[in-house]
Amino acid sequence: MTLEPGLYHLLTISTGLFFIGVYGFLTRKNLVTMLMSIELILNSVNLNFIAFNKYLWPHRLDGVFFTLFVIAIAAAEAAVAISIVINIYRNNRSINVEQTEEMKY
């Protein structure tokens, strides 16, 4: 029995990827690692777009375009986030998320 990859396989992978990202975001204390987790979440979404586009509406390109958008925005977001992280480092001499609490009540 050959294992033809279908929609469900892809969705399973993307769900796994998503929750790995969420887990990483919630548990890691390093800001850069948290950023990487966000990239994982975004990529799982991209995977979803591509999968739905291919299996449900194969003659259209909406999902592909959306994926391209998300990649572009993710790049911009990474640039902004990295600059914030650098500033936090300059202020705190650390990029531990537990030390960035100045914005509390």
Partner: peptide, 17 residues
Amino acid sequence: IKGIQSGKIQMYAGIFL
């Protein structure tokens, strides 16, 4: 109730999730 505003990003994210 102001303790909810803790400034901890990961707690916010957890509650959001």
